[in-house]
Design a protein around this nucleic acid. Structure first.
Lengths: 258, 258
DNA sequence: AGCTACATTGCAATATACGCAACGCAAGGA
DNA sequence: TCCTTGCGTTGCGTATATTGCAATGTAGCT
C-alpha cells in the first residue's frame, strides 16, 4: 500500500527488538544497503532510531516521547502511579487507569499482579476501551455533563457483546443514573463474559471527572461480590489521586446516598 | 531524504498531539487527500494510528507497545516503579532508573518532583546516558566483569565535558575501582558542570548488576554533600528493588568498607 | 601494508507513490 | 422528496521520488 513506509515500520519493529547493523537491516528487509541506509537516516532524523558508537542502530527516544505526548497529561500518570501500585498490592487484582482522550477512553496505566503465574489481562496501555461496556467507561460517562455524554455517544453503534451488555441508549442511561448516584460503577461481564470490574472516578482541580481507576479480575479468580469488598480501598485510591490533582472534596456536591 | 517516510512521521506527530480527520491531515501535509489516506492506512495497519467511530484518526497503541518492548524488561520497571516514587517523596530530588541495554545505558524511568515550580531536568526516558560521565553509568560499569567493561568501553571516544570528567581510560578505571569498593557512585558535574548525582546499583536474581537508581539535583538546589546525606535512602531503595528481582544479599560478597 | 567488511555517495532507470477526477455516501436544507 | 454539500474512497496515467548498482571512503584485522 505504501511500500517505503511499510519498510520503515518493519525496520522500527526490528530495531525495537534488538540492535541492528545497516547490512543486517538490508538483508532482513530484502533491499539494497543504500535503501536501508536512507530509511534509517530518515528515522534517525526523527529520533525514532539512534546510531550507537558501535555503528548499530537502536531504538530512539523519539518514539517514547511521542507515546508520552499522546498519553497526554503525564501529570495524571505521575500523580497516580504510586497509588495504583499500592492498590494492586492491597487487593492482589489488576489495576487500570483510564482517561478520557478526545472522543474515547484509553488506558494510560496498568499494574498487573507481579506473580509469575498470575493471569495477564489482554488490556494494553494506549488501547481504547469500550465506552459503554466497561466499568471505567460507564463511571466517566456517568459524571459528564449531558452535552458531553451525548457527544461521546453520538458516534457509538451499540453492540450486545454479552447477555449483560447495556446495548441501547435507554438502558445505558438508566445504568448511568445509578452509577452517578452511588459514585462507582461495575462491569458484570458486559464486554467479556468472564471479566469483572469495579471502577471509581478521578476528578481534577475543577471537580471535573477526567479519568477512572478500576480493579479487574476474571471470574475464576474473584467474583464480582469479592471485588466489591475492595470498594473502600478503590474509593480511597481514587480520592487520593483526585487530591493530588488539586481536587478539594468540599468544593463539589457530595454523591447522594442511595 | 525519504519523502513519504518523512510525511508519515509528520502525520504520526500530528496525530499524537490531537485527533485528525483525513482532510485536515492532507491540508497540513500539503498533499492530496488520496495521498494522506494511503499513508494513514499504512500506519493504521501497523496500529500506529487508529480510526475512531467518528472518522478521525487518533494515536494507536502500536507505538506504545513498541516503546514498552524496547524498554525491555517491563518487569524491572513494574517492580521498581513504586520504590522510585517513594524515594522521590523522601528526598524531594529527581529519581532516575537506568538500565544496561545492549552497549548502552538508557533511562527507563524518571520521577520528577511533582511541584510545579520544580526544575525539570532535560533527561528523558529512552535516552542514552554517557557511560563514563554519569553516576549511573559508572556504578553499572564498576560492577561488570572486566570483559564486559572492556566491551562497553571499546567503542567509546572519551570527551572532557567538564573539568571533573574522567576523560581517559586510566583515570576512569581508578574511579571505577573506588566505586566498586564502596558500592555507589557520584557524578560531580562530570557531564554538565552544575548537575550532581549519586547512584546505586540494582542486581537481578543472579547477583548481576543490570541497572541503577540515581538521585539528581542541580547544584543551586542541593550540593553533592547534601545529596550524599540521602545515600542511606538511595541504598535502601536499590536494595529493595534488587530483592523484588529475586536478589538475595547473602549470595554475593559484601562490598568492602573503604 | 594489504585485506576484508562495512558504511556512504552519485547517478541513471523505473518502480512507486502521487495528484487528478470520478464515484459513493451520509447529513442537512429547501 | 430531492438537491446540495462535504466528506472519504477508488482507478488510473504520469512524473517524481526511491531504488539498485557501482565506485568510493573508512576502519578493523591478519
Amino acid at each position: 500500500m505504501a511500500q517505503s513506509i511499510q519498510r520503515a515500520i518493519n525496520l522500527i519493529r526490528l530495531v525495537a527488538e534488538h540492535p541492528l547493523t545497516l547490512s543486517e537491516a538490508a538483508d532482513v528487509l530484502g533491499v539494497h544497503k543504500s535503501t536501508a541506509l536512507r530509511i534509517l537516516q530518515t528515522l534517525e532524523a526523527a529520533r525514532f532510531v539512534r546510531k550507537t558508537g558501535a555503528g548499530t542502530y537502536v531504538f530512539g527516544s523519539g518514539l517514547i516521547e511521542l507515546s508520552e505526548l499522546a498519553l497526554g497529561s503525564m501529570d495524571l500518570r505521575q500523580f497516580a502511579s504510586a497509588h495504583l501500585r499500592v492498590l494492586q498490592r492491597q487487593t492482589g487484582h489488576t489495576v487500570h487507569l483510564a482517561q478520557l482522550a478526545g472522543d474515547e477512553i484509553v488506558y494510560v496505566d496498568k499494574v498487573d499482579s507481579p506473580a509469575f503465574d498470575a493471569v495477564k489481562l489482554p488490556s494494553r496501555i494506549g488501547r481504547a476501551v469500550s465506552i459503554y461496556a466497561s466499568a471505567v467507561g460507564k463511571v466517566i460517562l456517568a459524571h459528564l455533563s449531558q452535552e458531553e455524554r451525548d457527544r461521546l455517544l453520538s458516534h457509538v453503534t451499540f453492540e450486545r457483546y454479552t447477555s449483560t451488555t447495556f446495548a441501547d441508549r435507554e438502558s445505558l442511561d438508566a445504568e448511568l443514573t445509578r452509577v452517578a448516584e452511588r459514585g462507582w460503577a461495575i462491569d458484570d461481564g458486559e464486554h467479556d463474559a468472564y471479566v469483572m470490574c469495579v471502577a471509581a472516578p478521578i476528578r481534577d482541580s475543577r471537580g471535573q471527572v477526567i479519568a477512572a481507576v478500576s480493579l479487574t479480575a476474571i471470574e475464576v479468580i474473584a467474583s464480582l461480590d469479592q471485588l466489591k469488598e475492595k470498594l473502600p480501598l478503590l474509593l480511597e485510591t481514587s480520592a487520593l489521586i483526585s487530591q493530588e490533582l488539586g481536587f478539594t472534596p468540599e468544593s463539589s456536591p457530595a454523591p447522594s446516598a442511595s
